[in-house]
Structure formats: structure tokens, C-alpha cells
């Protein structure tokens, strides 16, 4: 494949940028679902780092980074399912997904 021509720095910078975008989204949006989207982006950026380090590391045949990424994909799917379930439950209860309005501990 063509990946060998790009140095590791490129991938790391893209991952850092995506992570920052995800963080900005999670911190600034009002809608709970968009906060989850931001978190997913951050997880994906971490995955890109893991795979890039696996590919450029000294022992790619050990598969460590790739395995970590695959497990992280599985965990992220579980996280998304539970998170969106919670959002739906909160919406049913409080009739809103706006995080700024969810400021009460009591239902």
C-alpha cells in the first residue's frame, strides 16, 4: 500500500486535530447526542494513533496496537449503545436533550 510514503508525523497530527475537534464538540454543543458524537470522534482519533504506532513501531508482527484498536472499536460500540439509550431515556423523562437545561438532580 501507499502508507509507507507518509511519515508517522502526518498521522499523529491528523489524530491530534480530530481529537481536538471531538473535544471541542463535546464541550460546546448543547445536544446530548452531539456530545456523544464528539466522544466518538475522540475515540476514533485514539484508534488512528494506535494503528499508526503499530505500523511504524519496531514489531508490527506482534499485532499489539492493532489488537488494541479492534478492542477499542468493540468497546466504543458498547459505549454508543448505552449512551444513546441513556439519552432516549432522559428525553422521555425530561422532554429535552439540551444539556444546559438538565441541571437538576431530582426528576
Amino acid at each position: 500500500m501507499t502508507g509507507a510514503a507518509t511519515p508517522l508525523v502526518g498521522y499523529l497530527l491528523v489524530a491530534a486535530l480530530l481529537f481536538a475537534i471531538g473535544l471541542a464538540g463535546a464541550l460546546t454543543r448543547r445536544n446530548a447526542i452531539l456530545v456523544l458524537i464528539g466522544i466518538e470522534l475522540m475515540l476514533n482519533a485514539a484508534n488512528l494513533n494506535l494503528i499508526a504506532f503499530w505500523r511504524y513501531g519496531p514489531h508490527p508482527e506482534a499485532l499489539t496496537g492493532m489488537m488494541f484498536a479492534i478492542f477499542s472499536i468493540a468497546v466504543a460500540a458498547a459505549e454508543a449503545a448505552v449512551g444513546l439509550g441513556l439519552v432516549i431515556s432522559i428525553h422521555r423523562h425530561a422532554k429535552t436533550t439540551d444539556l444546559d437545561q438538565m441541571n437538576r438532580m431530582k426528576g
Binding site: M1, T2, G3, T6, Y11, V14, E40, N44, N47, L48, I51, A52, W54, R55, M66, A69, I70, I73, A74, A76, A77, A80
Partner: peptide
């Protein structure tokens, strides 16, 4: 990008899990 990094399995898993499910 995963495919570019020769991580075929992870790339397809990414499509299947993220685009297909998440």
C-alpha cells in the same frame, strides 16, 4: 486511513461497526 496503514481488518471492522451500527 487504516487501510493505508495496512490494517485491512481494522479498516473493515471500522466501516462495519461505525458506519453500519454506530
Amino acid at each position: 486511513l487504516f487501510l493505508q496503514l495496512d490494517a485491512q481488518f481494522a479498516g473493515f471492522a471500522q466501516i462495519l461497526v461505525y458506519i453500519g451500527a454506530v
